[in-house]
Design a binder for these strands. Sequence first.
DNA 1: TCTCTTTTAGGAATCATTACTAACTAGCAA
DNA 2: TTGCTAGTTAGTAATGATTCCTAAAAGAGA
Lengths: 141, 141
Amino acid sequence: MITETIQQRFKDHGLKNTPQRTAIYTALVETTSHPTADDLYQLVSQDYPMISQNTVYYTLGVLQKAGLIREVNVGHDRARYDGNLSPHHHLICTSCQSIVDVMDERLNELSFPNGIPSGFTITDYQVEFRGYCKACRSKTA
Amino acid sequence: MITETIQQRFKDHGLKNTPQRTAIYTALVETTSHPTADDLYQLVSQDYPMISQNTVYYTLGVLQKAGLIREVNVGHDRARYDGNLSPHHHLICTSCQSIVDVMDERLNELSFPNGIPSGFTITDYQVEFRGYCKACRSKTA
DNA sequence: TCTCTTTTAGGAATCATTACTAACTAGCAA
DNA sequence: TTGCTAGTTAGTAATGATTCCTAAAAGAGA
C-alpha cells in the first residue's frame, strides 16, 4: 500500500494525516490476522515508542466511523479489527480464535430472509463459519 | 416449558437442580430477547432477591459448556445469551442492538465455502443480518 | 442420615475500554 | 511564513463487565 493513497483516503474522509494514524491504518490494511487494539499497539510501538494505547483506541474509532475499517466479532473478549473492506466472510477457530478470510463469491448473493418483523430494513449481512484450524485439530488428536 | 423437563435436562448433563439454576435457564428459554447476564440477574432477582451476579455468570458458563444455551455476538459490549437451540440466525439492529430471530430454513443449507485453508474443519455457521428496526428508523427519519 | 461434590454469595481483583485533560500539530488562510 | 483553530495525542484516572477466591450452603446418591 502506497502512503500517497492512504493520505488521500484520509483526506477524502476529512481526517488529518498523522504519522501515528498512518501507521495504525497501514498495519491494519497489510495484515490478514484481524488484530486486537493491543496487537496494533504492540506493533506500532516498534516504530513509535511514545504512542499511547489511547491513541490506538481513538484512531480505531475514527477509522471505523469513517468506514475505512470494520470491527469483527469473535466472542466477547477483545474487539478485533479488519482493514479489508472487500466483501468477504470469516472462518473462526473455536479453539484458538484465529480468523481466516472467506472470499467465496457465492456467499455475497444470499437473498434476504423471510419472516422478519415489518419495518425492519436490512443493510447487509455476514456469515461466520466456525470450526477448528489445522494446528488446533492436531493438538486435540 | 415444564419444570419436569428442565430437571431432566439438567440431570442428563450431570448438572444439579437448584432453584437459581432453574430460574435462570427458564428465563432464558422463555424469552426471545437475547438478554445479557445482567438482564437475567435483574429478572431472576425478582424471585430470588439474594441471588448474586456471580451465580448468574457461573450458571451461564455451566449451561453453555453443557450445550444447553449459546452465546450471541453483538459487538463487544456485553455477552448476550440465547436459550433457543433450534437452528436459526439473527437480525441485529445497528442502532439499538436488539436481536431478532431469523428462522428462514433456506439459510440452514448453505454449502461450505471454497478456498479455506487445508486442514480447517468447519463445524457450523451463523448468518448475522444487520439493519435498522422499525422504531430506530422512525427516530432517525 | 451421612458424605461428597457442586453450587452459591460476597468481596476483591482483573482487564479491556472509555473519559478527562492539557499539550501538541496538521491544515488552512491571511 | 506565520497564526489560528479544530482535531489529535499521550498520560492518567475511571468505568464496567467479567473472573477469581473462598467459606458456607445445599443437591444427590449411598
